[in-house]
Design a protein around this nucleic acid. Structure first.
Lengths: 362, 362
DNA sequence: TTGTAAGCGTTATCAT
DNA sequence: ATGATAACGCTTACAA
């Protein structure tokens, strides 16, 4: 309500003086500056953001696109969203959230109408419309996630090819030749959520190269996972897997760990557990699990940093595709075993001499 | 980039004609309108939001304040946030998220700088700064939650006094005289999160009035809940509670149900389970639980509706404090029992003749 | 039915 | 060191 004119009048100076005092873009005598600032505080003057934006100043608003597909309660993706908001805030930016189904329309609308300074894309899937249309936005844009074809879109993600390799090499090096893949929520595969699908493929590929046998768990429908059945199946397998590679979330892992416990299987002595592409930092886990995490904090920091380098310094970022190396966080849930001789040959019905896994924890 | 002048030039009309075609605020000949719209589409013209706002039009942006206190992964509150965003979107509004610690500063900044049309307050605690300062905002404001003193702030919430009464009356009517209160996460009590605290108090008060004995579970620290111990304690109690009243989240309830099962206690035949002030709709629950839910969807719809009535129709809403009646959602986890005669008298060490609860489910 | 021009609240250029 | 004023892109009162 109170504008720069009111301040100027009350301080007995011109509007330009007020503007310059506030922006610091030219020298002002200490006396005038003090008087102006005093009035500014007294009148609680805050410059009109629209007027500033019209003059070409930045808004300090970033659009964050996170289309809500189906269920609203996907805590997994909230981590990215909140860290993004947090990073933006730290840099002095606010976040305009775009959750509509027609994400591309929304992004075009807010960029073309000059409502925001830049755009962040969250929950990117393998063939993402928002990425494909990046050239139609009037503002810089960074995706968190790496679609199959990133075109001109700047992308930041974990290197999931490397993560898949790292996971399998890690197990292989510790003697594991038979692993059980605990699938993520089916919905994540179906929506072709970028990394979940890619990671699984890379793990299977690497396992094949190494001669590691991978059996996949049954489909894991949302909210219907039967941990008891999973463990029962595990015990019935021949040869019995020496490790579980997990893509599912904390709730599922907790249930599995509990069931393993009930079934008398100790982690890692009787069965190793490695979680890949998950993020357990904040969730309750019944026991620490060795993990190659997705690192939302890091990704969001990188993405916001990259976007702001374009917004504030005009850097051209359309060429940037940053892949961050995965890291193994050892929490002692993977043991070293002696590979069973039969494990790489074909599995006949004969009772394979199962090598009891018992070694130092890793 | 492309402005109204460009459109006017290309269409061979004046800028006001273009403006009027787009706003529909005066009659335009069909021919001109068509031509203009064609050019608008071809040039992908989108009016500059700042310029419009300067002319007094609405921005169609609502600020949503949800300060992140401590841990970032509080899924509970995300539901409110997402439903709010969804409701806003449905009404044609975008959402500017304010997560900073200094919520009041942020709200003052975005309202005074005219960046938003209105403000929604989420995760309101009993003595909430944001509510206390509501008069210092330059835009209409609605809180979801009911602080101790709402002052001039419009508030929408479940009537938790009524909910507490409803919960206890419901159990009392079904013969329960001894109940065990399963506490929510301690953090929720500590931060004095509005309803969690109020609800507990109201339940205890009502129980006292009815002569229902309430024993509280031990503190439930985040991520450290020991369901087995909880059930062990339950079995050791004398007289043994016939019902559990739950304030904790789905993860905790799942664990408890599982442990009850393992301990041979059937719900509801051996022990009733009533959840109050929770929201299990989207979470996996091992068995349906009778619930007086918090109804975020409804609350958000009411709040957004109220706010928009102020934003769009200029209604004065500072007098509005809407309390929504709680509803009991029966999912068959509460049984009717025959009250034990000893239950209202003092509990001596004598082995009370525990009335085995077995009746029709409710 | 359409055009002209004032004005919204700022910033920045030009004077002084 | 400070002041007057054009310009930003749009909406709308007024004119034609």
């Amino acid at each position: 309500m109170t504008g720069i004119k009111d301040v100027a009048k009350a301080a007995g100076v011109s509007v330009s003086t007020v503007s310059y005092v506030l922006s610091g873009k030219r020298a002002i005598s200490g006396k005038t500056a003090d008087k102006v600032m005093e009035v500014v505080r007294k009148l609680e003057y805050t410059p009109d953001a629209s007027a500033q934006k019209m003059r070409g100043l930045r808004n300090r608003i970033l659009a964050v696109s996170e289309p809500i597909r189906g269920d609203i309660n996907e805590a997994k993706y909230n981590a990215y969203f909140l860290y993004t908001a947090w990073q933006a805030k730290n840099a002095g930016y606010d976040v305009l959230l775009l959750t509509g189904e027609n994400a591309v329309d929304d992004i075009q609308r807010v960029t073309r109408s000059n409502m925001v300074d830049g755009v962040l894309l969250l929950d990117v899937v393998e063939d993402d419309d928002r990425v494909a249309q990046v050239d139609s936005y009037d503002k810089p844009c960074v995706a968190i996630g790496y679609p199959a074809d990133r075109g001109d879109c700047a992308c930041v993600d974990i290197d999931f090819a490397a993560a898949g390799t790292l996971a399998m090499d890690y197990l292989y090096k510790r003697g594991h030749r038979d692993v059980l893949l605990l699938r993520d929520n089916e919905r994540d595969y179906e929506r072709r959520s970028g990394y979940v699908v890619a990671l699984r493929r890379h793990m299977l590929d690497r396992a094949h190269e190494l001669g590691v046998r991978v059996v996949e768990s049954g489909k894991n429908e949302a909210g219907r996972f039967d941990a008891a059945a999973f463990v029962r199946d595990l015990k019935a397998m021949d040869p019995r897997p020496t490790a579980i590679v997990n893509q599912a979330d904390a709730a599922v892992v907790n249930m599995v760990v509990q069931e393993l416990d009930d079934a008398g299987l100790k982690v890692p002595d009787d069965i190793s557990l490695l979680s890949v592409g998950t993020f357990f930092e904040n969730d309750l886990v019944r026991r620490p699990v060795t993990e190659i995490p997705v690192m939302p904090k890091l990704l969001c920091a990188k993405a916001v940093g990259l976007l702001l380098s374009a917004v504030e310094d005009g850097r051209r970022i359309s060429a940037s595709g940053e892949l961050i190396s995965p890291v193994m966080q050892d929490h002692g849930s993977v043991a070293t075993v002696i590979p069973s001789v039969a494990s790489t040959s074909d599995a006949t019905g004969s009772p394979s001499p199962h090598t009891s896994p018992r070694k130092k924890r890793t």
